[in-house]
């Protein structure tokens, strides 16, 4: 069975979340810039004088379609990497997916989701996830 994970996270956590997902072998994803609010409500910005409020805050939404058995691990990975503990850390939604079609080959369902070196090929090869190189910025 195939599921879709829709994770809405802080923009500034995107790099770490992507990095952590790559380490566990999640290869395909797309990312959308979104604006919204949950319980946090909004933030205060500096204007010409004093301040003003905005209620829709910028966040990024990561979309991942994956096999059922990888969902919990992926959720845990996103949650750990996106977590700051403050209000506005975001939400993760999981949906069932009816079907998947890869346009270039016409593969469908689970086969359309397979990539060389992804979370499932690693599992079948009995290889633990290699320590992906950490990208270090500014050092």
């Amino acid at each position: 069975m195939t599921k879709k994970i829709e994770a809405i996270i802080r923009e500034e956590r995107l790099h770490d979340v992507k990095d952590a997902l790559r380490r566990i072998g999640i290869v395909g994803m797309n990312v959308v810039e979104v604006r919204g609010h949950g319980r946090q409500g909004g933030i205060t910005l500096a204007g010409r004088t004093g301040t003003y409020q905005i209620d829709l805050l910028p966040r990024v939404q990561i979309n991942i379609v994956l096999s059922d058995h990888n969902v919990e691990k992926t959720i845990k990975t996103i949650q750990d990497a996106a977590h700051t503990g403050g209000l506005g850390d975001g939400m993760i939604f999981v949906y069932p997916v009816e079907d998947v079609i890869r346009i270039s080959t016409g593969e469908r369902g689970h086969a359309a989701l397979m990539y060389e070196g992804d979370i499932d090929t690693r599992r079948s090869n009995g290889v633990e996830a290699p320590n992906a190189k950490r990208e270090v910025v500014g050092k």
Partner: peptide, 16 residues
């Protein structure tokens, strides 16, 4: 300094 006292040193404020 005025905008800093009220919140943060706003760039829009500085150029104004």
């Amino acid at each position: 300094f005025l905008s800093w006292r009220d919140n943060k040193p706003s760039v829009l404020g500085i150029v104004t």
